[in-house]
Nucleic acid binder design. Structure first.
Lengths: 198, 198, 198, 198
DNA sequence: GATGAATGAGTGTTCATTCAT
DNA sequence: CATGAATGAACACTCATTCAT
């Protein structure tokens, strides 16, 4: 086998794996987590069910990996354009805005991750590992507390007002169908900021 | 037939249906929505799979009915002890506290409803019908806006700070294992109130 | 219990049994022998599945009894208006015509009996007993052979040309939708008579 | 991969499908159409129930395909040795004889096809497509009518005396157990020919 | 006589996974 | 690497039948 063939094969392989991941997310988006079977995923990805087991140990591994991979990507996107030298409020606003944008651009992924994190599979994911993707932001929160800009309350309580409301609003009728308006993003951020600011 | 026998018969029947509902919720709590099959539910409820179809048309009907029934119960509990003549902030605090208490007392139900509302089954539920259970509270929010106590923003945005953070906090390590402390309830309420108050 | 009540009950009972038989035949006519279950029959007859077991030992007994009962009725109808003093050809024609008329008036029964006689249940029926209903006609055939009007061949061969073609023609597009025309009856009888006559 | 292996693979596959078809026909022959379930068929064919769904879409597809396939085979056999230059009566006799022979050699198939054509499944079969297998014979009938050898009556009436009586006779006690005698074939053909000849 | 509730055994079908090629 | 064929076990659901009332 020469290099050319080897290279083309590797590309093909990546395509296959990518096709499998996309098929998984799309299928869950279409018919739900419960009904998404291996053979349906394989059919959607235009591969044999057996092929799937070359890239993943089993169904569980596929679902978990897909989730983790997407969470990594999310971590990067949410921290995009953020400069720690910005004022804290601006950082939070950028983060808030990035979250809305990410959800809007990755609706199918988002639906997947919501279903995944509400299934028992979530327990197979190393949460600490996941949170590393968001660590820079955690440090900013800490800094805000120290600078007496953010309320000094347990992290989980702050998180409940920084991460969760976005999901709720994004799924509401305010945000389905058309583009999420800047007005909604700004209005809702005011509430979030009022909640956490000292 | 005497009353005693008649009564015992009715009780027995109710017991069966109740056993099925409980088994459903418990099983979902244990092994998740995805893996909860009809036969497993039946086995847990100590009835034949066929018996299940006496009380419910099919699996979907069982799952949806269970969800709707529990949401009704939840509506009642969250509004418990609330008097509309109270100051608005007090009402919100009571509602907040009731939510925590309800979740703590009905953990298995709550897990069920979270999984359910993140499955495609949720689309089978008439949301408008469900929201009727919370209508009194919606009117209070409206009153708060009119009295310029609550921010005048779309309802869905307010809801995102009133309903969702509780779930997040309840599921966090702050609230698992031991009783949810009054301190956490009060601390977190301060954030929620700051978010929505004008 | 007084006579009046007793009488009304007996009438009611007959109605029930009749309703069960009718439901059986109609259901088989609608969804076929394979799919016709006891509970569906009961539902169609507006009785409980359990009621069915008051009148019949089991499903097999119901199906067989229904078949036998209807075959009895058929025997009577096919021999209607037949006078053994008539010329043999006239008797055969009347029998032929009666068969067509019976099928037309009892399509649903006929479909039932065709499905039944092509199922293993048919082996549970005492054929000799059934044939008694047609015995007068068998004697006429015998007489025809003796008088050298009918071909002297085994009875089963004659029967194949006297009984079976009617079914075939009745099920063909010649006879569905509209009334079976006298012309078809007469034309086809000519073939049957040519077949068996010496 | 060498030819031998390739061949053996294909043979193996064909064996599986063939085993399924044979099991279907045999089982229907033994316990009837009504009781022949997918799992029983699979067990008889020594395959998993799931394997059956590799070759057929569902039970209906299996039953219909089996019927259609066998009808095709029947078409070929019934027209065997027939030369359209033969005298019309000879052609009909050969066809008659071929029918008896086919039934005798394929009893289990024949029982299957009788049960099938008396079930609702028959409506799923494209009758026009089926009749193509017998078209040469239909043309001969037409020729006979034109040559004033066969009675000029609707096709369905002729068919009722050409096709149906054979079934009736074959199922009678004249033909079960031992070989069907030439005498019966000839005797019965005389009746059929008398019926249709002008 | 009549029934609704109940069920173990069965239905047709799909599952996640493996294996020979 | 990639696959179509294969499967035992499970799926949601219906079956014929019984029984307490």
């Amino acid at each position: 086998m020469n290099d050319h063939l080897f290279l083309s094969m590797r590309i093909k392989d990546l395509h296959k794996q990518e096709a499998i991941i996309n098929a998984t997310v799309e299928l869950v988006n279409e018919i739900g987590f419960v009904s998404s079977s291996v053979s349906k995923i394989a059919k959607k990805a235009n591969v044999s069910p057996a092929t799937l087991y070359i890239y993943y140990e089993n169904k569980e591994d596929l679902l978990v990996s897909t989730y983790v991979e997407l969470k990594k990507k999310m971590g990067k996107e949410l921290l995009k354009n953020i400069d720690i030298s910005f004022p804290i409020r601006d950082i939070f606003f950028l983060f808030w805005k990035n979250t809305f944008n990410f959800i809007e651009k990755n609706r199918s992924f988002y639906k997947y991750s919501e279903q995944f994190s509400n299934s028992p599979y979530i327990e197979l994911v190393d949460q600490a590992e996941l949170e590393k993707n968001f660590e820079p932001f955690f440090r900013i929160i800490q800094k805000g507390i120290e600078q007496k800009i953010i309320k000094d309350v347990p992290f989980e309580i702050l998180a409940a007002f920084i991460f969760y409301p976005v999901t709720s609003i994004s799924n509401s009728k305010l945000c389905t169908g058309t583009e999420i308006s800047d007005e909604i993003i700004e209005t809702s951020f005011n509430l979030a900021w009022d909640a956490i600011k000292l």
